[in-house]
Design a protein around this nucleic acid. Structure first.
Length: 847
RNA sequence: GCGCUCGUAGCCCAACCGGUAGAGGCACCGCGUUUAGGUCGCGGCCAGUGAGAGUUCGAAUCUCUCCGAGCGCACCA
């Protein structure tokens, strides 16, 4: 498809034909010269303009931009450009999340250095984003793989360490066998690697963690404040992920243990088992205990007689993936550990099992099993023929198994405490008080959130700035030795081996211990790229500062972000980590705010023919082809007009050619206007002026409520009205026509910057229209002269009356009852009631 | 299994506190412009809001049930 061209008489300034390619080339150059979107610190500092910080999730440079980028940029630009037009100084930066596995894998494949791909892709993507007309301030750009950036990522790591928020521990961790690295819990989706989809397995490894759980409560509490301006689904996802629960810790003594089959033999006394439970009220029904099979506790408890059985069970558990483990209606498995514990309220000796339905890293890794009030425990009890004692009375006619609902406690008393007859809440309070008094338990809060595992066994990331010395242990790299720069590795050197490729870079790894000067080794893991992105939005405020990660004063000037636009896939990844970082930095005294993103918008995705675009389906839509066929503006307009920004866009349902037609139609207005520039619109056609001003007011409200698709529809109406005024109304020399065309150009500048710029020039103005300023709406023109009042009889519309907007209820009722059509509809029936909502409606009830 | 969101013309989508179901676009048809096609201009066609019930003077909008779609959570004790 070639560009469609429209011939019109040459107007003052601007081309006489709507030639997409010529226009795009012309304004691309002009904007490079004008730099209309440089954010000035001084302007905000001096109070000349109020600040706005518009942020879009920075991309991973995996190649050139695609439809997804185009959509986010187009939507984001509406807001950023609107803020400029409304007189704000807008910080609208863009950079690249440029560490990561794509480049590393490509480097291995092609025997290259990851930086080669990365920086080539960044170049291409930057150029494309500029040609797309995105209003980013490129003077502030950076890449997280630049040593000037990751130096500060490393510095932050050291600061976290100093505060006890970064630590190493050995633990069973998620392992992606395809990417050959560990993963954080947040990066495991339904048992699969978030990045590559491979089934995740477990490995026992020593890894670095951030103590995000220290902030669990605050991360949860602040969600209430964010709820009005964040998408509900993100709030919900984070609440679920943090997973706060209230309950109690209860200690079960493990006493004189009897080996089964050898009733006489006494085995040594073990330590107590402490469990976490959300249902301490059901303690009387705890008939056995379960320890996570892979928890160290299980190995400590197991008797010699049961060890072989336990060992083989553990091996089985270790082999299973999360996919197996999470599959529903899988029969309960486990093994008796050979020991018994004492239920602290009943004094009963209850057996202790190891099983895989209990998780090692939640709570204490052990539970009290109450089969009557927990379905999982019920199933285990059935499988192992263990007793079931109901301690909550199920309702009449209950036919289920475990009963988890509300009901009076039963069978729940001993010599010193009784819960019988109490509701669940009262029973909980009572038993917790009793446990605390006896010193065998206390109320407790638990979170589902785990600490963030951040070390990775791959090359293309920020090296962890630590040195391991046999004598001094883990030693931080002194700050003045940052950055710890990656060694030059390429191609086969990067092949994943299960340990970081950095470990093999002998010259790099072997260093002197900063403390004792003895031989030591660098930590060879790199940081998760989510560490890079947890603070990048701060760096934009002082992107070139080589003395600190960010300038607190400048961050304070611009932050927090007033809008953050991105995909909902980061609901509990990047968005949670960034919130965590912000709170830590605030505690360090570097930030004055505790939440980084005041408002958020999740855009949908672009699909094709009802399905996600993918190579295997062959339904991909190439952005480059669409841009060549229809031009930047038409593609942008199509993306914005498609529907609500949160909704997915099926490109097959869209009509970029229709968008192009509209843009040409709008553009032609600018050539038809003959009223002189600067002509006083007050002398112009009032009807058209009313449309113009009403449209502008509506567009303001629509942008602010993120209903960009409706805003486009309003501009289309204004274009139609202006067209009619020119051809059949007040004529092209009326100042109101000029006013309308200028309004069209300004509103269009939010969506179709090339067309808008061209219109603006043809209307006799200097570029850039993007900084022309939003027209002041004349409130007087928003007042309607007359409105249509509807008259209903029995709810059916019988007449429409033109009435003044100020009409009184009484006058409107009189007018309605006098209308011949209404009289006919009433037809002598008795009027029972008349509802009047002046000036819009009258409903007459007869009967 | 539990929870949330959404079902409006052939299609994408509008409709503020319940108050005229239609703003805009696509597709289609007609008329005009044009050598013709496209463009352009004008006009037209098209649903009673997934189904049913309730509340109300009045329901796309509120309530309940069902159907359908999408999303989230799902051994976290």
């Amino acid at each position: 498809m070639s560009h469609e061209q429209v011939e019109t008489p040459a107007a003052e300034g601007g081309a006489a034909t709507y030639d997409v390619e010529v226009m795009q080339e012309k304004w691309y150059q002009a904007w490079e010269d004008l730099q209309p979107f440089r954010a000035s610190d001084d302007v905000v500092r001096s109070g000349t303009r109020e600040k706005r910080y518009a942020l879009t999730m920075y991309p991973y440079p995996s190649g050139d931009l695609h439809m997804g980028h185009a959509e986010v940029f187009a939507l984001h630009d509406v807001i950023a450009r609107y803020w400029w037009q409304r007189g704000y100084e807008v910080l609208n930066p863009m950079g690249f999340d440029s560490f990561g596995l794509n480049a590393e894998n490509a480097a291995i494949r092609d025997n290259e250095h990851p930086a080669t791909f990365t920086y080539a892709n960044i170049g291409v993507s930057t150029e494309s984003a500029k040609r797309f007309g995105a209003s980013f301030d490129w003077s502030r750009t950076f890449n997280t793989s630049d040593p000037e950036y990751y130096r500060w990522t490393q510095w932050l790591f050291l600061k976290f360490y100093e505060r006890g928020l970064a630590y190493r521990k050995k633990s069973p961790v998620n392992w992606c066998p395809n990417d050959q690295t560990v993963l954080a819990n947040e990066q495991v989706i339904d048992g699969r690697c978030e990045r590559c989809g491979a089934e995740v397995t477990k490995r026992e490894l020593t890894q670095w963690y951030f103590r995000i759980t220290d902030y669990a409560q605050e991360l949860l509490d602040c969600l209430d404040d964010l709820a009005p301006t964040w998408p509900e689904r993100v709030i919900t996802a984070q609440r679920n992920w943090i997973g706060r629960s209230e309950g109690a810790h209860v200690t079960f003594p493990v006493s004189s243990v009897v080996e089964p089959g050898d009733e006489g033999a006494r085995v040594e006394t073990h330590d107590d088992i402490t469990v976490y439970t959300t249902r301490p009220d059901t303690l009387f029904g705890a008939t056995f205990m379960v320890v996570a099979a892979d928890a160290p506790l299980a190995g400590e408890l197991v008797t010699e007689g049961q060890r072989p059985a336990y060992d083989s069970y553990l091996e089985e558990v270790r082999k299973s993936t999360d996919i197996d483990r999470l599959s529903t209606d899988r029969p309960k498995t486990g093994v008796f550990l050979g020991v018994h514990a004492t239920n602290p309220v009943t004094g009963a000796q209850i057996p202790v099992y190891a099983a895989d339905y209990v998780l090692a890293d939640y709570g204490t890794g052990a539970i009290m099993a109450v089969p009557a009030q927990d379905q999982r425990d019920w199933e285990f009890a059935e499988a192992f023929h263990l007793p079931i004692v109901r301690t909550v009375q199920p309702p009449e006619g209950w036919e289920g198994e475990a009963y988890v609902g509300e009901g009076p406690a039963i069978n729940s008393h001993n010599d010193s405490v009784s819960l019988d007859g109490m509701g669940v809440d009262e029973a909980k309070r009572t038993i917790i008080d009793w446990l605390e008094a006896q010193g065998v338990g206390q109320g407790a809060v638990n979170f589902r959130l785990r600490d963030w595992l951040l070390s990775r066994q791959r090359y293309w990331g920020a090296p962890i700035p630590f040195i391991h010395c046999e004598k001094d242990g883990e030693v931080p790299v002194p700050e003045d030795q940052l950055p710890v720069v990656l060694p030059e590795l390429r191609g086969q050197d990067l092949t994943p081996k299960g340990v970081s490729p950095l470990a093999a870079a002998e010259e790099w790894v072997n260093v002197e211990c900063p403390r004792c000067g003895g031989p030591a080794k660098r930590d060879s893991d790199t940081m998760d790229t989510f560490v890079d992105s947890s603070w990048y939005f701060l760096r934009y405020c002082s992107p070139h500062d080589d003395t600190q990660a960010f300038d607190p004063d400048l961050v304070d000037l611009w932050s927090p972000c007033d809008i953050y636009i991105g995909g909902v896939e980061h609901a509990v990844l990047h968005l949670l980590y960034s919130r965590f970082f912000t709170k830590v930095l605030a505690d360090m005294g570097l930030l004055k705010f505790r939440e980084p993103f005041s408002a958020q918008l999740n855009q949908g995705i672009v699909i094709n023919q009802g399905a996600k675009m993918s190579k295997s389906k062959g339904n991909g839509v190439r952005l480059g082809e669409q841009l060549s066929a229809y031009g930047v503006d038409a593609v942008r307009l199509t993306l914005v007009f498609a529907g609500p920004p949160e909704d997915d866009i099926d490109w097959a349902d869209m009509s970029p050619s229709g968008s192009l037609r509209f843009l040409q139609r709008a553009w032609r207005l600018s050539g038809d206007v003959t009223a002189a520039a600067g002509a006083d619109p007050a002398s112009g056609d009032v009807a058209l002026r009313k449309v113009t001003h009403k449209t502008l007011r509506e567009c303001e409200q629509l942008v602010e409520s993120h209903r960009f698709n409706v805003m486009v529809a309003r501009v289309m109406e204004l274009v139609n009205a202006t067209r009619k005024a020119i051809d059949g109304g007040c004529g092209p020399d009326d100042p109101a026509v000029r006013e309308a065309a200028e309004a069209v150009a300004i509103v269009l500048s939010l969506v179709a910057p090339y067309t808008a710029e061209e219109m603006w020039e043809r209307l006799g103005h200097q570029p850039s229209v993007a900084r022309a300023g939003w027209p002041v709406v004349d409130e007087a023109l928003l007042v309607e002269d007359s409105v249509t009042a509807v008259v209903q009889v029995q709810g059916k519309v019988r007449a429409r009356l033109d009435v003044p907007p100020t009409i009184s209820d009484a006058d409107l009722e009189a007018a309605a009852l006098a209308d011949p059509a209404v009289v006919r509809a009433i037809d002598g029936s008795t009027v029972r009631r008349v509802i009047v909502r002046a000036p819009k409606l009258v409903n007459i009830v007869v009967g």
